[in-house]
Simulated assay, not measured.
Amino acid sequence: MGDANGGAPAPRRAPVFVEILERLARQRGARVEVEPVYGYAGALIEASGRRHFFKGTHFDINRAGAAALARDKDYAARFLAAAGLAVPRGMLLHSPRRAAQLALKNPDVAARLPARQAAHAFAGEVGFPVFVKPNEGSEGEDVTRVGDAAALDLALDALFAVHERVLVQQAVTGADIRVVVLDGKVEGAFLRRPLAVTGDGVTPLSALIAAEIAGFASGGKGSRIVADDPRILGHLASAGLGPESVPASGLTVPLLANANLSTGGSARDITGELSPELADAALRACAALGLRFAGVDLLHEGEVERSAAGKTAVGRMAADKAPVVLEVNAAPGLSYFHRLGPEAAARVETIYAHLLDALLG
Rank of each mutant, 00 (worst) to 15 (best):
G2Q: 10
A8M: 12
R12T: 12
F17A: 13
L24N: 07
R26K: 14
R31Q: 07
R31E: 12
V37Q: 14
Y40R: 14
Y40C: 07
A43M: 08
E46A: 15
G49H: 05
F53W: 15
F54D: 12
K55E: 15
I61D: 08
I61P: 06
R63L: 11
G65A: 15
L69W: 03
K73G: 00
K73R: 08
K73A: 03
K73E: 08
K73C: 06
Y75R: 15
A77G: 11
R78W: 09
A81E: 13
A82Q: 09
L85N: 05
L85T: 03
P88S: 00
P88K: 01
G90W: 02
L104M: 11
A111N: 07
A111S: 14
R112A: 13
F122L: 02
F122H: 00
G124H: 08
P129D: 02
F131V: 01
K133P: 05
K133R: 09
G137P: 02
S138Y: 10
V146G: 04
A150M: 12
D153R: 10
H163A: 01
E164S: 11
L167T: 03
A175T: 12
D176N: 09
R178S: 05
V180I: 15
D183A: 15
V186L: 08
G188P: 05
F190G: 02
R192L: 06
R192K: 12
R193V: 08
T198L: 09
G201K: 00
T203C: 03
A207K: 11
A211Q: 13
E212R: 15
A214L: 13
G215H: 05
F216W: 10
F216M: 13
S218W: 06
G219E: 11
G220K: 04
K221S: 08
S223L: 15
A227N: 11
P230F: 05
R231V: 06
A237P: 07
S238M: 10
L241I: 10
S249M: 07
N258M: 09
A259P: 09
L261K: 11
T263Q: 15
T263E: 14
G264D: 05
G265C: 08
D269R: 04
I270D: 01
I270N: 01
G272Q: 07
L274K: 10
A279G: 14
D280L: 09
A281N: 03
A285P: 00
A285H: 00
C286P: 01
G295E: 10
D297C: 03
D297R: 00
D297N: 02
L299V: 02
H300M: 02
V304K: 06
E305I: 14
T312R: 14
G315N: 02
R316L: 12
M317V: 13
V325H: 04
E327W: 04
N329I: 00
N329V: 02
A331C: 07
A346R: 11
E349G: 04
L355R: 11
L356R: 03
L360D: 10
L360R: 11
